[in-house]
């Protein structure tokens, strides 16, 4: 191979640059940080168990949307028999009253940008 030294050095430098955020995080000691969510005071359980909500709240919200808009259902009966009015603004954000300390923290961490609030209203704020 011609110019092996230059090429291999180039590849090493490139890999170091590409992975630099990983090294930066490791060096700063924040590599294990996960977002801290502010949970509603006085409430212990959401409309389904936490593990399910954490993994699949977006699927549940899509299901709620279709039930309300297309199937004329307004009430969600949870697995343990509790009933909820299916509304992002008036049910979800009623408990999780500060969007910036709940929704946004995980969404920012995972770099997702859901457009729910382009239309749906954040209580007490102008989104």
């Amino acid at each position: 191979m011609y110019d092996a030294g230059k090429i291999i050095t180039g590849i090493v430098v490139f890999l170091l640059l590409v992975t630099s955020p990983v090294w930066y995080n490791l060096a700063s000691g924040h590599s294990g940080d996960v977002p801290e969510l502010e949970l509603p005071a006085g409430e212990t359980v959401c409309v389904a168990e936490t593990s399910f909500m954490r993994a699949a709240h977006m699927n549940l919200l899509n299901q709620w949307r279709d039930e309300v808009v297309r199937n004329e259902n307004r009430i969600y009966v949870s697995e343990d028999g509790r009933e909820f009015n299916m509304s992002l603004t008036n049910t979800c954000l009623d408990c999780h009253s500060d969007k910036t300390k709940f929704c946004d923290r995980c969404h920012d961490y995972t770099m997702v940008d859901p457009y729910c609030w382009d239309c749906h209203i954040v209580p007490g704020g102008t989104n």
Binding site: A55, Q63, Y76, N85
Partner: peptide
């Protein structure tokens, strides 16, 4: 299927 919101059921508002 555990991620697609299988839990719970749906019904119209009582006053509808």
């Amino acid at each position: 299927s555990t991620l697609t919101g299988k839990s719970g059921s749906y019904k119209p508002d009582y006053a509808a």
